[in-house]
Amino acid sequence: MSSTSVSMTVNGQKVSKTVPARTLLVTFLREHLGLTGTHIGCDTSQCGACNVHVDDKCVKSCTMLAAQADGTSIKTIEGVAKDGELHPMQLAFKQNHALQCGFCTPGMVMTAIDFAKNHQNPDEQEIRNHLEGNFCRCTGYHNIVKAISDGTKAMHNK
C-alpha cells in the first residue's frame, strides 16, 4: 500500500504517523488519533461538520489529505476548551440553545471562532453569509446566529 509519513501538532500535542497516502485529514483525526469530535457529514465539501483549524485557517478536513497537513498545527473542537472551562463560543452556543441534535455543532463552533477572530462587531447578515458552508438541519440557524453574535462579543471583551 502507498503510505506516507505525517507529522503535525494537534491541539498542542505533536503527533507522527505513517498512514496510507489516501488518508483524509478527517479520517486521520477520527480514526488514527481517536478525535471523534470532528464529524463527517456530507463528505462532499458542503456541510462543514468536519471543519477544523489548520494553521489558524478554518478548512474542511474531508477535503484535505492528511499528507497535505504535514508540518501544520491543527486545532479541533477537542482543543478549544481550556482547563475544563468551555470556550466563550461554546458557552454562547449553550446559552442560546444553538443546537438540537448537535451533529453540526463542532463544525459550527470552529467556523464561528475563526469568524470572530476577524470580526469585532458583526451584523446578522455578515454572520449568515459566513455560515454559507455550514449546514444545520435542526435549528433553522436562528439561534446559531445569535450565539455567534454573543460569542464574538464575549471573545473580544475578555
Binding site: 465539501s45 462543514g48 471543519n51 485557517k57 478554518c58 478548512v59 474542511k60 477535503t63 484535505m64 467556523t111 475563526d114 469568524f115 459566513h130 454559507e132 458552508g133 455550514n134
Partner: peptide
C-alpha cells in the same frame, strides 16, 4: 466562490 472554507483552499 463556494463558501469561506472552500475559498481558503
Amino acid at each position: 466562490i463556494g463558501d469561506p472554507q472552500v475559498r481558503i483552499r
